[in-house]
Design a binder for these strands. Structure first.
Length: 882
RNA sequence: GGGACGUUAGCUCAGAUGGUUAGAGUGCUGCGUUGACAUCGCAGAGGUCACUGGUUCGAUUCCAGUACGUCCCA
């Protein structure tokens, strides 16, 4: 034994190993994909994380899944391209920089647009590679030479191109419209950026007296009394008898005194509140719609900071919440407040800063969605795009079918500026890829729209902008449509849907064939990880303490596609222990390969050899099938069980006598061959899941080639499939386990050699036992005799009955007869219960007549076997009781 | 209000086109350092597969409803 091998530590330490191999892979350009027409493409575009963000567990999961798929397909011989990149994240990034400026007591206006943008670019330079470095430590095998950024030259060109085309096709329009205004972020946001949260609130009932008859009034229920300052009408349901006589007449708005027409609109729900709704078109989206139908004026009373404006009269300057309190007091004083009820209602909040959204009128840019949505619906319906799991198709379709126009302008500076120019002298408005200085109509001075586009506008183009669009590149030719998109379920509407309609529109082909949706990583109590709760787990801490392989393995096991996953540190330990198990199995192999010669001829395969090679083929087949179906967790489980419960627990133990030279030198050679082959293939199968440790071990083992990354994904070898060997091993495992159980229950010290008599009437069973008696002796530490039948009952023997074999272990002086009888009785009871159930079926005529014959046969065989077992157990109990 | 998902061992989760001895990890109990590994080994205990009906020869699995939980949409 060489010193070198003794130096392999018994505990695997991932830290140096991981950085070492990642650097090697990246420097060797193993992640780079070139356009190769004759190779089958496999392409994933990475959901771009926020450029100045940090890696969180969601990223870790998402990118682990993508890396597994990419490494696996690459090993299968695909031309695998995984395109990485980052997103400029308009609101979030701008907010960060504004925060920084605030520390210097500066606002962005102090710098002006240009200087401010310089600061943001500086910020991006400073933090922009943080997350990509973090992705490297996770092991992501993406092609960094093709890394992109949503605001780089190419992506920006694509954004401009798309905007202009949609504009020219009439699918982008500008309108004075009600949108969601965030008073904190100082910008509009799109409908899906609004999060509805149920909040406790009050429903205020207010009297609106009739103009003609001060005695008569309508009671209005509202949760937002401060908006009454912007009321322009009252609406009732046209079927509502209570109010019909007032339709067309007027009410007087309390406090203000304004005259409000009563209108009839089917929108009003007669059963909610009082059935009469005050109309505030400038501050409520529903009122806005109704207002447009009825040609109502739009009176704005709240400003962009969320304060009451000059239209609010004496309330001007109050913020919306203070104003509400004051209005309520004033209404009370007037006697106009009828009652106040507590109720919970949904309030829209900004998904970035969690400020309550203020619906607000303003001029914004929109994308007309209907014409874009239709083909996107078709593509999912006819299966050109498949969601995994399938149920997300419905969620997607439901949203697409009810889609509203997309507000794409943002009142920010950081982003793609809207390429539209307005003439200062005439009404001319021009959209142009290249900057325009003067009006083509009147020659007047033009100014560009100050707003930028929604960040998602650029990410919607990601699958083709990253491949070179609008140019016709060879990359687009080979890799578009991409193979699969991997992302979280929280982002289907934001991103997936928009990529689909954009891809269909501009590439005339779906952007990906499959969408693999995963759940969220929750904390151990099932809550979302969030900064405010402080319950987040930093993937980098985990990589530091347990290694990236363990993190990856933990994230994808014990979980199924589309379902959320709770983060438990215990599970992380389990993954690390598995890595350590692999490490030690290979350590053992190394210790016995000092003289290994791949060309040496050995003896014939033993049963154990044939068995493990056959089981390996099963593992290859199953793991590959699961991967094809995106069941990555199941694939990992198969490999975990094969390597731990079969290879380590049984094969290595069975091979030890040969490896230790207790038999012939040729036997040792064969055992070496098998252990090397099985271990190496196991590592290859595990490589996509645990890239680092598998590379480290693979490199230490006898191997050919530069890296495990470049090996071929194992294919099942039909000639190595051996059902006979699997059947025989199953018998041996059952018998050995039975012997061990007796030893354990009778407290035979592990070091003490026991005696065992195995009785098998069936010749084939005897054959199995006799041929493999060495295995039985070594793994049960027993002296074994095989008999056809028991000539005389051994004195004081404990026993067990397995399929086809009876096990006796004479234990003079060690056996506790009562305990043994109890044990046998317990087993007997279980067997009898099973037997009763099986016989119940066989006595049922309906079952015999209607069940398929193979099922009936199976039950019959089971009954016979259980019957024999029961008889044997009964006999044993009788014998001992005598 | 509409919808999706979940409810299986103490905990976290798998699973079966309907017939299996219903599994894994972890935790628990007992024994243990046998020339890879105590981040380990051997053995064991632990489940009315949420509830109620229906379909069926047979349901934990399919269908309907109920309860509880999580989430999405409005």
């Amino acid at each position: 034994m060489s010193e070198h091998i003794n130096n392999i530590p018994t505990v695997y330490n991932p830290r140096e190993v991981e950085t070492k191999w990642y650097r090697h892979w990246e420097e060797s350009k193993y992640f780079s994909a070139k356009v190769e027409k004759d190779k089958k493409p496999f392409c994933i575009v990475m959901p771009p994380p926020n450029v100045t963000g940090q890696l969180h567990m969601g990223h870790a999961l998402d990118n682990t899944l993508q890396d597994i798929l990419t490494r696996w397909r690459r090993m299968q011989g695909y031309n695998a391209l995984w395109v990485p990149g980052t997103d400029h994240a308009g609101i979030a990034t701008q907010a960060k920089v504004e925060e920084q400026l605030a520390k210097e007591s500066l606002a962005k206006y102090d710098l002006g647009r240009e200087k401010f943008l310089e600061r943001v670019w500086d910020w991006k330079e400073q933090y922009g590679n943080r997350i990509t470095t973090q992705l490297r430590s996770l092991g992501a095998s993406c092609d960094w030479d093709r890394e992109r950024f949503t605001m780089d030259e190419g992506c920006s060109k694509a954004v401009l191109e798309v905007f202009i085309r949609l504009f020219e096709q009439g699918l982008i329009y500008r309108d004075y419209y009600i949108t969601n205004w965030c008073p904190q972020c100082q910008t509009t946001i799109s409908d899906i950026e609004v999060e509805h949260q149920d909040k406790p609130g009050q429903l205020y009932y207010i009297k609106y007296p009739a103009k003609d008859n001060p005695e008569e009034y309508i009671i209005i229920a509202t949760t937002r009394p401060e908006t009454m300052l912007g009321d322009v009408a009252v609406a009732v349901n046209p079927e509502d008898d209570r109010y019909l006589h007032l339709v067309g007449k007027s009410l007087i708005l309390p406090i203000v005194g304004r005259e409000l027409p009563v209108i009839a609109d089917a929108y009003c729900d007669p059963t909610f509140g009082t059935g009469a709704v005050k109309m505030t078109p400038a501050h409520d989206p529903n009122d806005f719609e109704i207002g447009r139908r009825h040609g109502l004026p739009e009176l704005q009373v709240i400003d962009k900071q969320g304060n009451m404006n000059e239209q609010a009269g004496k309330y001007q300057g109050l913020d919306r919440w203070e104003c509400r309190k004051q209005i309520v007091r004033d209404l009370e004083a007037l006697g106009a407040l009828v009652k106040v009820e507590d109720m919970s209602h949904a309030v829209g909040h900004c998904y970035r800063c969690n400020t309550a959204i203020e619906p607000m009128l303003s001029k914004q840019w929109f994308v007309k969605m209907k014409p874009l949505a239709e083909p996107a619906i078709e593509a999912a319906k006819d299966g050109r795009i498949k969601f995994i799991p399938e149920r997300f198709t419905k969620i997607y379709l439901n949203w697409m079918e009810n889609i509203r126009d997309w507000c794409i302008s943002r009142q920010l500076w950081w982003g793609h500026r809207i390429p539209v120019y307005y003439c200062q002298d005439c009404d001319e408005m021009v959209a142009s890829v290249t900057p325009i200085k003067e009006c083509s109509k009147c020659g007047g001075k033009v100014e560009q729209d100050p707003d930028v586009l929604d960040t998602w506008f650029s990410s919607a183009l990601w699958p083709f902008s990253t491949l070179g669009w609008p140019d016709k590149t060879p990359e687009l030719e080979q890799f578009y449509p991409t193979s699969v998109l991997v992302t979280g379920r929280d982002i289907i509407f934001f991103w997936v849907a928009r990529m689909i309609f954009s891809g269909l529109r501009f590439m005339e082909e779906e952007p990906f064939k499959e969408v693999f949706i995963h759940g969220l990583v929750l904390d151990s109590q099932g809550r979302k990880m969030s900064k405010s709760l402080g319950n987040g787990v930093d993937p980098l801490d985990v990589i530091e303490s347990h290694g990236a392989d363990s993190l990856r393995f933990m994230l994808i096991t014990g979980n199924t596609p589309g379902n959320d996953l709770r983060f438990h540190f215990e599970r992380l330990d389990g993954a690390r222990n598995f890595a350590n198990k692999l490490w030690n199995a290979s350590r053992f192999a190394m210790m016995n390969l000092g003289d290994y010669d791949p060309a040496a001829r050995g003896s014939e395969y033993t049963l154990a050899d044939r068995w493990i090679l056959s089981r390996l083929q099963g593992a290859v087949t199953e793991a590959t099938d699961y991967l094809e179906r995106y069941e990555l967790g199941e694939a990992a489980r198969v490999l975990y069980e094969f390597s731990w419960s079969e290879f380590c627990d049984w094969y290595i133990e069975l091979a030890k006598p040969r490896l230790f030279g207790r038999t012939t030198p040729e036997d040792r050679v064969t055992a070496q061959h098998v252990i090397v082959q099985v271990l190496r293939e196991t590592l290859e199968l595990l490589h996509p899941f645990m890239p680092f440790i598998t590379e480290e071990i693979w490199q230490k083992l006898p191997h050919q080639g530069e890296s495990i990354m470049l090996t071929n994904w194992p294919k099942p070898e039909a000639t190595l499939r051996d059902e006979t060997a699997e059947g025989e091993m199953a018998v041996l495992i059952e018998v050995i386990t039975a012997m061990r159980r007796i030893r354990g229950e009778m407290n035979v010290p592990p070091g003490k050699k026991a005696e065992a008599i195995l009785v098998a009437i069936d010749e084939s069973f005897r054959g199995i036992l006799n041929r493999n008696i060495a295995y039985l002796q070594s793994l049960a530490n027993a002296e074994v005799t095989v008999l056809t039948e028991l000539k005389e009952e051994p004195d004081q023997a404990a026993s067990a009955v397995t399929r086809g074999v009876e096990v006796f272990m004479p234990l003079r002086g060690l056996i506790d007869i009562d305990k043994e009888i109890a044990r046998l009785n317990k087993e007997l009871k279980a067997v009898q219960a099973d037997l009763a159930r099986v016989q119940g079926k066989l006595n049922n005529e309906g079952f015999l007549a209607k069940a398929p014959s193979d099922v009936v046969e199976k039950e019959k065989a089971k009954a016979e076997e259980l019957g024999m077992k029961a008889t044997a157990l009964q006999e044993r109990v009788k014998m001992l009781s005598a």
